[in-house]
Simulated assay, not measured.
Amino acid sequence: MPRFLIHHRHEPHECRVAFVAFRGHDSTLRHKAALASCAFGDHAIWWTVDAADEQEALALLPFFVAERSTVTRVISVVIP
């Protein structure tokens, strides 16, 4: 199955909304660790997900988060 990197960005005043939006959204991403930079002032979150395509990857996110996100197909590589 293809792997995607989801990159979400929000404004500082939207930080709480980005996290609370997941409460009403059924997603395998809930209650799982994600990388985030909010504590350091950049207000971005990243997830690596397996999905059939970009639309399926975005469907894992609530609307507020998805509309502020980009999706990039990625693979693991070994750095020499």
Rank of each mutant, 00 (worst) to 15 (best):
I75R: 10
F4S: 00
H13N: 13
T28D: 09
I75V: 12
I6D: 00
T48G: 10
S37C: 08
E14L: 04
V78G: 15
H43D: 07
L61N: 00
F64W: 11
A59V: 09
H25W: 02
V78L: 12
P12G: 06
V77H: 13
H13T: 14
V71I: 07
P2T: 07
A51S: 07
A52W: 05
H43K: 09
R68N: 12
T28W: 10
D26I: 07
A33I: 09
T70S: 13
C15G: 07
A44Y: 03
I75S: 15
S76W: 03
H31Y: 15
V20I: 15
W47K: 00
R23L: 01
I79L: 08
Q55A: 14
E11S: 13
T70Y: 14
D42S: 12
H25E: 02
F63E: 14
V78W: 14
P12S: 08
E11H: 11
W46M: 06
L61I: 05
F4I: 03
V20Q: 11
L29R: 03
H31A: 13
H31D: 13
R16F: 12
I45W: 01
Q55C: 06
V74T: 08
R30W: 10
V65C: 04
V71H: 02
A51V: 05
L35A: 09
D50F: 07
H31T: 13
P12Y: 06
F4D: 00
F64A: 05
I45N: 01
V78Q: 11
R23G: 02
L61F: 03
V78Y: 13
S37R: 05
K32E: 14
F22V: 00
P80Y: 07
R3F: 05
H43T: 05
E11D: 14
F22A: 02
M1G: 06
R3P: 00
P2Q: 08
E54R: 11
I6M: 03
A57R: 00
L60I: 09
A44S: 14
A44T: 15
V49F: 02
V20K: 10
E56V: 02
V78H: 15
E11F: 12
T28K: 13
D42A: 15
H10W: 05
L29G: 04
S27E: 01
T70E: 10
